[in-house]
Nucleic acid binder design. Structure first.
Lengths: 335, 335
DNA sequence: GTGAAAGCGCTAACAA
DNA sequence: TTGTTAGCGCTTTCAC
């Protein structure tokens, strides 16, 4: 047995011929533009179905002057935040209207440099980018070529939809301080532009409280990197009694490292994550975490993108939301 | 401040004019086809960069007769298996060569009927589909229109790359039987074509062992659905002492339901999942699970797709791999 | 309501 | 190694 395929895909011209109208009409009917009588319209749809006609996105994109497709760039699918953003974006885009083109940067081996290019080459009208790792300046350069909406990160001069990380980090650190902890460490990620607010806020708060900040940095945004960094951090002198991590993935890494050393949570170590992922909510994990409402951020970003498409010259959007600390059982008063 | 954009994107014609060669040459240079001298080639790249030229994928797709783009259809990003498949597929596709176009079916609300259409309309040459919910017959119909590689599910007459679920389920059930359990239940998903092998194997094995199968079916492929179904299952008479679930997501749902009822795992209930997700490996979760090697399945599927693209008439691929039971602490001997 | 005609930017023969 | 010439299937004025 072998694979069958139609000899030649039907085109709008075929449909037009079948119905006995012009190709223009068929084109209009499929974009339900005004100017097609209901009967003609129905006849066109019927014929299209009969002929197995499929709209050709490439041809349409080429012919149309306006770009309506939305590109969504995601850093990493293994972090729930990004799939939540995807879900949020989809909620914002009308069912039938704007096409959504996905591009995921991180494969197992590392960041895919071509992920952004593929979006540009697909000639999307705008790119919603979740957690770009490029410096602010380069994001602005990109936005010069094609409109960009940055999600979960603020970039000056570029439409941005992001959580108020200052408030989120403050809530986390205050929670730990309130429990009596003084040796509170922070597990940060690599120091990319726009990904350091949580760290800075933590360090500032520690100093304000008359304490010494102790920041460990994972060399990658993965659970494994955090686990490695945490193994060192927790083995050092004056082991921290609490750790606030850049995200939940990191918190899980710290958690594994802690358990591997025989420490208990929250007995020996209080742990606060960031994202409030579904994993954080599992019994037995019960991670205290900061909910940044990723789905809502995605929805807002989608809306901002739609507005930008309609009004290229409009004012830059700068939309923040306030994250919420969700206290579970990974934090406890200092003994 | 407002968004800037270039007046008119540069085309190959612009580049050709700038360099003083023909447009053909530019086209050749960008596809690094033979017939362009190294100097010309370099001059073209320089000019392209200077002019901000970007290859237009839509135009290229329209003009080229052969379809080389690979479409990847994923059921649900919230299930780790599918993002693993994505990662696997990417490993198989050459860096620069075939474009990969992603389409995700399940948003928060449910299955996106348009997900498959968007791939067809993007005129991909082949679709790698992970966990289609359509009946076998409809998958075959689809494969008539466009080549399909089915991953994680076998479809007769269609290229398929899938785990030997019979072996996987057998290993799971044997493990539980070996621990002395007799009241072993199964948490199945909705009875879609191609997603019932695990259930059938379980039921057959139970009967072979002289035991009565007890299958509960979640009404959706989500943790929440499994949790609801498990709440009923575990509240019934003759509560099972062990549950084998269709996947890890379900196992987590059963786990939550069990804990909510005050049951302990593995004390009161042994639990075996399927997928060996990263969550299963976390301390405190320690879920015994069947590893189906999703990344490898994805890579194999990518390779099969590439072969099919090169040889449309070749024999149907039917590739299985053997899953491996990973025993952790969610299972224990019957007390 | 409907149709004719002019491309969109690129690839792919073929010819030189 | 280079240039010429047709389209690919669709959108989109503009006229009827």
């Amino acid at each position: 047995m072998s694979i069958q395929r139609q000899p030649r895909p039907a085109t709008q011209a075929d449909v037009a011929r079948e119905v006995g109208v012009s190709r223009t009409l068929v084109s209009f009917a499929f974009r339900d533009a005004a100017g097609v009588s209901p009967e003609t319209r129905q006849a066109i749809f019927d014929a299209a179905k009969r002929l197995g006609y499929r709209h050709n996105a490439a041809a349409a994109a080429l012919a149309s002057k306006s770009r309506t497709a939305v590109g969504l760039y995601l850093l990493d699918l293994r972090n729930e935040v990004y799939s939540d953003v995807l879900n949020g974006v989809r909620l914002a885009l009308p069912q039938a209207g704007n096409r959504l083109i996905l591009s995921v940067s991180r494969s197992i081996g590392g960041v895919d440099q071509g992920a952004m290019d593929s979006l540009i080459e697909a000639r999307v009208g705008i790119i919603i980018a979740a957690a770009l790792l490029d410096p602010d300046e380069r994001v602005r350069e990109l936005a010069q070529i094609i409109p960009v909406v940055s999600v979960t990160r603020r970039v000056e001069g570029v439409d941005s939809v992001y959580p108020d990380d200052r408030a989120g980090a403050r809530a986390a650190v205050e929670h730990l301080l309130g429990l009596g902890h003084t040796r509170i460490a922070h597990m940060a990620g690599p120091p990319f532009d726009g990904h350091t607010v949580r760290r800075e806020t933590y360090e500032q708060m520690m100093r304000d409280a008359g304490l010494t900040p102790q920041t460990a940095a994972a060399d990658d945004f993965t659970q494994e990197a955090a686990e490695r960094a945490a193994s060192e951090l927790l083995a050092g002198p004056d082991r921290p009694t609490a750790v606030f991590t850049h995200n939940d993935q990191f918190a899980l890494g710290v958690r594994e490292a802690a358990y591997a050393m025989g420490l208990t949570i929250p007995g020996d170590l209080s742990l606060v994550g960031y994202d409030d992922s579904r994993t954080a909510r599992l019994r037995g994990i019960d991670l205290t975490s900061v909910d940044l409402h990723a789905v809502e951020l995605g929805t807002t970003a989608g809306r901002v993108a739609l507005e930008r498409l309609n009004d290229p010259g409009g004012p830059i959007a700068d939309m923040t939301s306030t994250p919420r600390l969700v206290v579970r059982n990974s934090t406890a008063p200092l003994r």
